[in-house]
Design a protein around this nucleic acid. Structure first.
Length: 948
RNA sequence: GGGCGCUUAGCUCAGCGGUAGAGCACUUCCUUGACAUGGAAGGGGUCAGAGGUUCGAUCCCUCUAGCGCCCA
């Protein structure tokens, strides 16, 4: 028995447990060994994260695809897992330590700290997985993976070593985006440009060889900068070679204020003559553009900041080199160890008091910020590891061009190409501890070539293991050298000191391992194959790679999709996925982006608690039109919860009326027109939904399902079947019961990918009568309905629906509550038959007292036009004749307008000459129909005159 | 500055070269035994503006205005 109401909170947990117990989501079920594979890898959520609405959308869409294909009989793998989220997770744990006033990570050391992170992972790592289950996600949880798992770590190591060997990973000293708060490099994708109201400071740089006079513009050159503190690292001034006002200064020198360094004025077209003063200061160690200019002119790099963003001057040899002592310099040196922003203020003050400040303009500009720390990012000169993304990008670009991977919607291709074609080296090292430690070991420069001199060059050994690194070192250093690995940085330094001091005659060498870890996205880039067991040649790799589809948000096309493409193609020689479906954002009901700081975040679990997972899923699916953000409001979810209730009640009604599934029932065998009609409609809906899911048109699929269930099955089939179901027993009743149950079954299947819980529950409840169910709904066959189209049934039921609707309209408009007679005028034989067959139904649904036939319309009746024929409601005395006249005149006006419009077309020689034949025919039919309608209305108006 | 996209009913959004659609909201009516989380009926749109292509444009093209996102 189906309960009176559907309690999602009671049902969902139980149903999910049943799926898991049956292993319904497992890939590689034996009975599907010969089935085609279908695979999706989940975009791994952060292991310590929790489910937000973006996840809910993303995973709902994947689940729709996966459940759909599973029902289509494929061997489906939805590969779940989480990533370790290096920076975010490390931040959380460090903050925790701070809050608890425990020692920081440096104090406790790497090993201890990592223990803490693993403990934190153990504690909070399962949360999001369970939340995904509450959403109904049908992942194969037995295969859950984590980027820091042994297997995935092995994959990361192997890839690093291979790419290094191939020259696609290298170490380089370049400017990186440095986060002075987190003390790590980040990739340019992790930098957010934020518009900031700042200033443009115009500074006078005195020309060499003349006496500086703030009043005399011939004694200096003015440059504008947004970051005056970096002037301490200036090494040149650039002016455009064709800048007529300034080009005469090229080749001359200026004396850097506050420092006294002599720096050249160089000609470079980077200096835009239209912008600012036309001259720009060049600080190659603190600006990406300046770095390039510096390279072109062979300028030195003077870094004046330390890792924490404080000025580093006193012990900074490159800063002091070639600068004559002066009191100005001494005063500048007092800024040593001062934070960059405090230093900026002080420097501006000094420039002003000493006459070097020309003017200050307010200036709005973009300032880079770290996406995790929100600190202002410094371009910073360090050694980091890079991936040669440009080389890897080439096959990845080609694969999309050749259609091996398709973006849906297609226009995202352009975004992908734009980025890929202008791709920069990918900085993959992070100064963190939580992550995959880079498998590189360093030792002193080979003494056989450099004796025991100061080791300013380090030998580098990139290897899969410490043993391999030692073996490599053995091969490099002189025979008999003892080689060991320092357990930590400290012991290495201690050894290094003694080595440098020449106390090491025995040639005992220590190696140290690179302390840094890899960008989390490096491991995520391997996700489509590392999760399948690569580098082992597992059956899963062979069966499920390349994956079928990837479903993700546009915000990680660069971070993730592009990098998976590069890695997949390079390492597997095949694209990682055939289709990439890109969905958009879930916004709040006002259209604002959900964010913690705005406080407008809608918690999917709260929605699930209140309305059920199915309602949330259906809402998201209905809203997921390609290319559009989804505005989510509780109202919408409520509507879809109501839809679930509607379905529930329909099932209850059907059950209550003895509709039980009949073994071997073939819908094609139905005799009753109504039953043939619903079979026809079911097949139609099934086609629409199938095609829509195949095309990733989730909204169309959900919309078609909604309309079919509510506006076809419930509104008409159930209503029209009532007289039969509640009437006398017989073949028609038996058939209708069987058909009602059959169609409901098809509905459950068609809705299952969208609303898995309620459909599975009903599948179970309806199994109580009739033949035994062979499988859970999740594992049942998707409808494949052939040979059910029935135009005749469609025409007949359509006629009935039109008739009922028309009578209801008049009743409503005329405010008639009593049962009224219906007279069909000059009815065709077909209409007569239909009317007789459907009399009971029409009487019931339109509240008609009786149906009769006449050759002419009775006087004083209301006229209805049903598919070209006249039906009347003799309402003499009941109706307001004026109102009826007005109604008819309105219809008349419409008919006139229709005729006029069609005539305009048909009278146009060009239209007749150029329009396709079927369109012309259509127009002609339309005219005939309108003409007929008009004639009937005129007759009715005439009759009204007679009645008056 | 470059790129992508949007502008359709009061709201949120589908759609599309051949007479404008849905949901919600609104109005009126309905405690008929699946469902008031419901049923029935109804009002409401020169499809942002201006040009162009076409027999025909809400749809294709160009421009303008406004809004959004991404990249520099």
């Amino acid at each position: 028995m189906i309960d009176k109401t559907y309690q999602s909170s009671e049902v969902e947990g139980r149903i999910y447990a049943a799926w898991e117990a049956a292993g319904a989501f497992r890939a590689g079920r034996p009975e599907r060994a010969k089935a085609a594979p279908y695979s999706i890898v989940i975009p791994p959520p952060n292991v310590t994260g929790s489910l937000h609405m973006g996840h809910a959308l993303n995973n709902t869409l994947q689940d729709i695809l996966v459940r759909f294909e599973r029902m289509r009989g494929k061997d489906v793998l939805w590969q779940p897992g989480t990533d370790h989220a290096g920076i975010a997770t490390q931040m959380v744990v460090e903050r925790q330590l701070m809050e608890r006033q425990q020692p920081g990570r440096r104090d406790m050391g790497r090993e201890k700290f990592l223990e803490r992170v693993w403990a934190w992972k153990a504690e909070s790592g399962g949360i999001i997985i369970n939340q995904l289950k509450r959403l109904g996600a049908s992942c194969d949880w037995s295969r859950e993976r984590f980027t820091m798992d042994e297997g995935l770590s092995k994959a990361v190591l192997k890839v690093f070593v291979e790419l290094y060997r191939d020259g696609l990973i290298y170490k380089d000293k370049r400017l990186v985006n440095w986060d002075p708060k987190l003390l790590t490099a980040i990739s340019d994708l992790e930098v957010q440009q934020v518009e900031v109201r700042g200033h443009l400071w115009h500074i006078r740089y005195p020309l060499e060889g003349v006496t500086f006079n703030a009043e005399d513009a011939l004694t200096f050159i003015v440059v504008a900068t947004t970051r005056p503190e970096t002037m301490l690292g200036d090494v040149a001034i650039a002016v455009h070679p064709e800048n007529d006002k300034l080009k005469h200064l090229i080749g001359k020198n200026v004396i850097l204020p506050l420092v006294g360094r002599r720096i050249p004025i160089v000609g470079d077209d980077y200096a835009d003559p239209e912008k600012g003063t036309g001259a720009v200061k060049i600080t190659p160690a603190h600006d990406f553009n300046d770095f390039d200019v510096g390279k072109r002119h062979d300028l030195p790099l003077i870094s004046v900041l330390n890792r924490e963003g404080k000025l580093r001057l006193k012990t900074n040899q490159t800063f002091l080199d070639g600068v004559p002592p002066s009191t100005a310099l001494d005063e500048t040196l007092t800024l040593d160890a001062v934070d960059r922003f405090a230093a900026r203020k002080k420097i501006v003050e000094r420039l002003e008091t000493e006459g070097f400040l020309d003017k200050i303009e307010p200036h709005i500009h973009m300032v880079p910020h770290g996406d995790r720390s929100n600190a202002v990012i410094e371009p910073f000169l360090t050694d980091q590891w890079y991936v040669d993304a440009k080389t890897l990008a080439q096959p990845a670009i080609a694969a999309v061009r050749e259609g091996k991977t398709n973006f849906v919607p297609k226009n995202w291709e352009k975004t992908y190409f734009d980025w890929m074609e202008n791709i920069q080296p990918w900085c993959i090292s992070r100064q963190l501890w939580w992550g995959h430690q880079i498998p590189a070991w360093y030792g002193p420069e080979n003494p056989s070539t450099y004796g025991t001199q100061l080791p300013f060059y380090e030998e580098r050994f990139v290897a899969l293991s410490e043993e391999e690194a030692i073996a490599q070192a053995k091969a490099l250093y002189p025979e008999g050298t003892e080689i060991s690995v320092a357990s930590n940085e400290e012991t290495y330094r201690a050894w290094q000191r003694s080595y440098v001091l020449g106390n090491n005659q025995k040639l005992s060498i220590k190696l140290r391992r690179d302390e840094d870890v890899l960008d989390t996205w490096f491991s995520s880039a391997l996700w489509p194959f590392s999760t399948l067991g690569w580098p082992e040649s597992t059956p899963e790799v062979n069966r499920f790679y390349p994956t079928s589809a990837l479903v993700t948000g546009f915000d990680i096309i660069f971070f993730w999709v592009a990098r998976m493409m590069m890695m997949g193609l390079h390492l597997m020689k095949e694209v990682p996925f055939k289709d990439v479906y890109i969905h958009r954002l879930v916004r709040d009901e006002k259209g604002a982006k959900m964010s913690k700081s705005k406080g407008n975040v809608v918690d999917p679990l709260g929605i699930i608690d209140e309305y059920g997972a199915d309602a949330l899923r259906f809402t998201l699916a209905r809203g997921a039109a390609q290319g559009n953000d989804i505005r989510l409001s509780p109202q919408l979810v409520e509507n879809n919860r109501n839809f679930a209730t509607k379905l529930w009640n329909a099932a209850r009604f059907v059950e209550f009326n003895g509709a039980a599934r009949v073994a071997g029932f073939d819908p094609k065998s139905a005799k009753e027109t109504l039953n043939r009609w619903i079979a026809h409609e079911t097949a139609k809906a099934s086609r629409e939904i199938t095609e829509a899911i195949e095309g990733y048109r989730f909204n169309d699929a959900a919309g078609a399902a909604y309309r079919f269930v509510w506006n076809v099955y419930c509104d008409w089939y159930v209503e029209l079947s009532k007289p039969v179901l509640t009437g006398p027993d017989g073949a028609a009743k038996d058939e209708t019961r069987a058909m009602a149950a059959w169609a409901l079954d098809e509905i459950l299947k068609l809705l299952h990918p969208f609303m898995p819980f309620i459909t599975e529950e009903l599948w179970d409840k309806t199994a109580e009568t009739g033949p035994k169910r062979e499988a859970l709904l999740a594992l049942s066959d998707w409808p494949a309905l052939e040979g059910l189209d029935d135009a005749k049934a469609e025409a007949e039921i359509g006629w009935v629906i039109d008739l009922i609707t028309a009578v209801r309209s008049v009743r409503s408009e005329m405010n008639i509550t009593a049962a009224i007679p219906l007279v069909l005028v000059a009815a065709s034989a077909e209409s007569k038959q239909r009317a007789e067959r459907w009399a009971d139904f029409v009487k019931r649904l339109a509240r008609v007292a009786d149906i009769s036939f006449a050759d002419a319309a009775p006087a004083g009746s209301v006229q209805l036009l049903i598919r070209g024929e006249v039906a009347t409601l003799p309402l003499k005395g009941v109706i307001d004749l004026d109102a009826e006249r007005a109604r008819l005149q309105k219809e008349m006006a419409k008919a006139d307008a229709d005729i006029k419009r069609v005539d305009a077309k048909l009278g146009n020689a060009n239209f007749m000459a150029n329009a396709p034949e079927e369109i012309v025919e259509q127009e002609q039919e339309r005219r005939e129909e309108a003409e007929n309608r008009r004639a009937k209305i005129i007759e009715a108006l005439e009759r009204l005159k007679g009645a008056a």
